[in-house]
């Protein structure tokens, strides 16, 4: 009786497991065909459809700052913005690796750097974008930032809990349905005016400076170093660019700012054709009108900055 029960439970469990696993495969495949945010850029990368001469990696400060249309026009080449909103360097590695695995080697990589990119990731932002990418290659990175990842890897469909629109998104993928995509070659413009949150933050700090005591910079810079080695191995020229930040914010970051810049500069010096370029003292940083918050340029600011970055790329790299 017991044996019969255990065998039946095992068979039933296995059957359910296999069915759910197959269903997960179907959904993953559907999402990999989805042409809308947040899957589109990922799927372009996986398909090897980007193959740009210049690619921009980084966080939202890449996503909102580097306009490929302006850069392409100026340099007469194909560039692509692969900035991933809400990510720090640990998570950015997933996109870098996926890109190098499926696309031709870019001539220039622009990696945006700053302080927040060194912050530890406490939560995966827009986690659903990673669901079709739960591969062995990405396990270690994802597992380091999210306790649920291990169970999500072993129990089929568990990763989709709470995402009940996943069936709709899968269908969109299979039917090639396009919804509004605000990205242009991975770049998203924000034309809002200054949001005033920085003033609130300053008020809360009450004259104090940001101390970043929660960040182990030494440890995080080791992760960055590993990432930089990978970037360097996959490109002729790597530019580590610190995009403009509103100057008053830089004053708040004064405790660590110059030290971190030095570290990035030292990191760049270790590699051939790798340069650290600092835009924090650029004139853009001193005008609120170019920002929508203290950390992100608005459309006007991004357009001017993209012109400048095109000139910088041309200065550091001779395109063949």
């Amino acid at each position: 009786m017991m044996k019969q029960f255990l065998i039946k439970m095992f068979h039933l469990g296995l059957l359910i497991y296999l069915i759910l696993w197959c269903l997960q495969l179907v959904i993953d495949a559907g999402l990999k065909l989805n042409q809308n945010n947040p899957f589109y850029e990922w799927n372009m990368i996986d398909k090897g459809a980007i193959n740009a001469e210049v690619v921009f990696f980084g966080s939202s400060r890449t996503y909102k700052h580097y306009n490929p249309e302006i850069i392409d026009k100026k340099l007469h080449l194909n560039s692509y913005n692969l900035g991933n909103d809400g990510t720090a360097i640990d998570i950015q590695r997933i996109r870098n690796k996926a890109y190098f695995a499926n696309n031709k080697t870019p001539q220039v990589i622009v990696q945006n750097v700053d302080i927040t990119s060194l912050f530890p990731t406490e939560k995966l932002y827009k986690k659903n974008q990673y669901f079709p990418r739960y591969t062995i290659r990405n396990f270690e990175i994802l597992n380091a930032v999210d306790d649920a990842i291990f169970i999500e890897y072993i129990i089929p469909m568990y990763k989709y809990r709470g995402y009940l629109n996943v069936f709709e998104l899968t269908l969109q993928g299979y039917l090639s349905t396009k919804t509004e995509n605000k990205n242009h070659k991975g770049f998203s413009v924000n034309n809002s005016s200054w949001d005033g949150k920085f003033e609130q933050q300053k008020q809360q700090l009450n004259g104090e400076k940001l101390n970043f005591s929660h960040v182990n910079f030494k440890e995080r810079l080791l992760v960055f170093d590993e990432m930089l080695a990978n970037l360097n191995a996959h490109s002729n020229t790597v530019l580590l660019v610190w995009a403009p930040e509103y100057y008053e914010r830089q004053e708040l970051e004064a405790a660590v700012l110059s030290n971190i810049k030095n570290k990035y500069s030292e990191a760049a010096d270790k590699y051939k054709n790798t340069y650290f370029i600092d835009f924090t003292k650029d004139s853009l940083s001193y005008h609120k009108k170019y920002f929508y918050n203290s950390y992100h340029l608005n459309g006007t600011g991004a357009a001017i900055f993209s012109e400048k970055i095109a000139d910088t790329i041309a200065k550091y790299h001779v395109f063949k």
Binding site: L12, L15, I16, I19, L20, L23, A148, I155, M157, Y158, Y160, R161, G162, Y163, L164
Partner: peptide
Amino acid sequence: RYAMYVIITLVIILNIQN
């Protein structure tokens, strides 16, 4: 019956909270 087991298990998994 087995289809029902699969559907119910699936729905439970999709609705588990963190």
